[in-house]
């Protein structure tokens, strides 16, 4: 990540391989209350431009926050991708009307004499 600051504008270059456009949009959405932002695609990076950064302290605090936020939103993206199916399944089950959607219990009733719970009516 390359960060430069010049005349109240912060420019950040992030590696496209690491940070997707979705992550960048979600992350920098939160900065649009106070600042003007621009995101554009270069060859192997995305360039984010943040304007109206007035003081040096503000710049430092902002850069620190941006580093944390980028990691956080990247983490969120991973969670979202990895849990998409389970989340859809969970909500489908939550709103299903019948219990045809339900899982079997985990196996192993562990009775040495061979009790079969499905035998009871």
């Amino acid at each position: 990540m390359n960060i430069s600051f010049d005349d109240s504008v912060i420019k950040i270059d992030v590696d496209k391989e690491i940070y997707s456009l979705t992550v960048l949009h979600k992350c920098f959405y939160w900065y649009t209350g106070k600042y003007s932002l621009d995101i554009c695609a270069l060859d192997s990076t995305y360039l984010i431009t943040i304007s109206d950064v007035t003081t040096a302290e503000e710049k430092d605090a902002l850069i620190q926050k941006i580093r944390k936020d980028l990691i956080d939103f990247k983490t969120r993206e991973i969670i979202s991708i990895e849990t998409k199916n389970i989340r859809d399944l969970l909500i489908a089950k939550a709103f299903a009307h019948e219990d045809t959607f339900e899982e079997d219990p985990p196996p192993g009733i562990s009775d040495p004499l061979g009790f079969d719970p499905t035998s009871i009516k």
């Binding site: 219990d99 219990p105 985990p106 009733i109 009790f115 719970p117 499905t118 009871i120 009516k121």
Partner: peptide, 12 residues
């Protein structure tokens, strides 16, 4: 309570 994981038993 482990047997109750099989729904037929609570139903019965």
């Amino acid at each position: 309570g482990r047997s109750f994981a099989w729904k037929n038993i609570p139903k019965a």
